[in-house]
Design a protein around this nucleic acid. Structure first.
Lengths: 278, 278
DNA sequence: GAGTGGTCTAGACCACTGT
DNA sequence: CAGTGGTCTAGACCACTCC
C-alpha cells in the first residue's frame, strides 16, 4: 500500500559498480591495479557472472577502468594531457608576417610534438562544396555559395591511430584570387592558414572558439584508439577579420582523456581611479 | 595457418548497433522516432534478446538514443545548447567598479537565465582547507597554506536537478583582511568575485580557462539528470592579477549535451606595413 | 594449459508504459 | 492487461594472456 520511499535497494550490478568505484576513488585500488576477477566478484557479492560483467561494463563506460580478454580489469591510468593553448592564435598571426625562411618547417598548427616526426604521416584533402544552411549562416552567405573544404588528418604510422583531425572551411570567393590556396599539393603551407589568408589581403583580428563534447561513435573510438568511456572534445573555431566578417571556420576534435584546451582572456585595466572627479 | 586479415565478422551486437547508428545518421530514423523493439531486433537479425539488448546498451552509452522501461528506445533529440561566453569575464570586471545599486541583483556569474527564478534554489558553502599539493602548485604557495573554499550549487526545485555546480579557491592570506569575504551569509554578493577581490585591493588582469571532459559517475549523472552517454565538460578557471600571481581558482562542470563554452581571442593588429622602411 | 574476460543463448521475473 | 525494456540467472564457447 504505502510506497516505501527509498527502501528499494538498487540493482545488484549498480551496487557492485558503486562499491568498486568508491574503492578506486579512495585509493584502495590505485591506478594500474587489478580489479577482482569476474569470478571473485560473483562470489563476493553472490551474484551471477553476467551481473558482475554488467558492473564492469558500466565502469568501463565511465572511463574508470580498462578491460580486455585474458586480463583482469585494471584501474585506468590517466594519460598526460597535451595542452592546446589559444596563445597559438597570436603566435601564428605574428609568424605570418615573417620571411618565408622563418615560416618554413612550421606547417599546420595541429602538428603533434612530443613524438618523432618519422612516425607521423600527414594528409590534407581539398574539395569544394556548397555551404548548406548551417555553414551559410555562420559565414553570412547563401546556402548555394561555394566553400573550399580542407580536411587535415595526421596518423601514427606505427599504430595507425589518428593523431589529429580537423576540417576547415573558407569561401571560394575569398581565396580564389590566389590559385595556390586551392591546391592541396602546396600543403603543408609554411606559416599556416593565417599566412595563406594574408596572400589575399585578409588579416584575422579575432577568433571565437566554441567548445562542446560528446561520446565518439564506434568507428571514431577505433580511429583514435580511444578506450571505452572517453569523450571527444569538439572545437569550432571561427576567424573574423577587421570588419567582423567570418573568413574561416575550422572544426577540430580531440580525445578528452589526453587533451586540455586552454584559453587566455586578458582583461582591460580599470581606469586609474574610479573615484576620479570628472 | 595463415591469419585471415579482416575476414572475421564483428560480433553480432556491434553489427546491430552499427546498422541502427547508420539509419540514425542517414535520417531514416529521425530524432524522436522509435527504434525497433528488442523483439523486432532479435527476429530481424536472428539473435537472442540479450544480443539485441547489448546493441541498445551501446547506443545509449554513445548518447544516440534514450531508452526506458515500457517504451521502445527513441532517437535522442539534442537539447539546445546554453552558451557560456568568456566575454562574461570582462563584463564582470567592468561591473565591479560600478556603484552598489547597479551591482545589486547580479549575483553569481553562474546564474541560470531562461527559467523562472522561483524554481531555482541557490546554495553557497564556505570552508577553509589546506592547499594540498595540486592547488599549492597552481597558487605557488605551500601545501600547508590555507585556502578559502567556496562551493556553489544551484538546483531546479521542481526536478531537484543540478543547474550549476562550481568550486572556488582563494588564499586565506589574500582575503582575510576583509572578514565579509569569508562569511557565506553575505552571498549572493552583488557584483561577484571580481568585486569581492577589489575590496582587498586585487584587480584581475588575466583569466586562463583550462577545459577538458570526462564521463560522469553514476551519482553525477543522477544529480545533473543526465541521460546515458553524455559527458561532463570540466573547466578550471585561473585568475591572475597584474603581477601574474594566481588569486583565484574556480572549478566548474557542465553537461556537454546542453553547454557550449565560447572563448573570444582578440588578435593584435599587424603593424601598418610590414614593408615600411625603418 | 589454466584462467581470464568477451560473446551469445534461453529463459525467468519485474517495473513501467501504453491502451 | 498486453507489451515493453531492465534485471538476473545458468551455462556454453571462444580469444586472449600469462605462466
Amino acid at each position: 500500500m504505502e510506497p516505501q520511499p527509498t527502501a528499494v535497494s538498487p540493482p545488484i550490478h549498480l551496487r557492485i559498480a558503486d562499491d568498486l568505484r568508491m574503492q578506486i576513488e579512495r585509493g584502495d585500488l590505485a591506478p594500474g591495479a587489478s580489479l577482482p576477477t569476474l569470478a571473485d566478484i560473483c562470489e563476493r557479492y553472490s551474484c551471477s557472472m553476467n551481473s558482475a560483467r554488467s558492473a564492469i561494463t558500466l565502469l568501463k563506460a565511465q572511463g574508470l577502468i580498462t578491460a580486455g580478454r585474458g586480463r583482469a580489469p585494471v584501474v585506468r591510468i590517466p594519460p598526460g594531457k597535451v595542452v592546446r593553448s589559444s596563445e597559438r592564435h597570436q603566435a601564428e598571426k605574428d609568424l605570418a608576417r615573417r620571411p618565408a625562411s622563418e615560416r618554413a618547417g612550421i606547417g599546420e598548427a595541429e602538428t603533434n610534438l612530443n613524438m618523432s616526426i618519422v612516425d607521423q604521416v600527414f594528409d590534407s584533402t581539398y574539395d569544394t562544396i556548397t555551404a548548406g544552411s548551417q555553414l551559410a549562416e555562420v559565414f553570412g552567405i547563401a546556402t548555394s555559395d561555394l566553400l573550399l573544404r580542407r580536411r587535415y588528418i595526421s596518423k601514427d604510422t606505427r599504430t595507425d591511430r589518428l593523431l589529429s583531425f580537423s576540417t576547415s572551411y573558407m569561401p571560394v570567393s575569398l581565396v580564389s584570387s590566389n590559385p595556390d590556396l586551392m591546391d592541396e599539393t602546396k600543403e603543408p603551407w609554411p606559416g599556416g592558414t593565417q599566412h595563406q589568408l594574408s596572400t589575399v589581403g585578409v588579416e584575422i583580428m579575432c577568433m571565437v572558439d566554441q567548445v562542446t563534447g560528446r561520446m565518439p561513435t564506434t568507428v571514431e573510438a577505433q580511429q583514435w584508439g580511444l578506450p571505452d568511456g572517453v569523450p571527444l572534445l569538439l572545437c569550432r573555431r571561427i576567424s573574423l577579420d577587421a570588419n567582423n566578417r567570418t573568413v574561416e571556420v575550422s572544426d577540430a576534435e580531440y580525445p578528452a582523456d589526453r587533451t586540455e584546451l586552454r584559453f587566455i582572456t586578458p582583461l582591460k585595466p580599470w581606469r586609474k581611479k574610479a573615484s576620479t572627479k570628472s
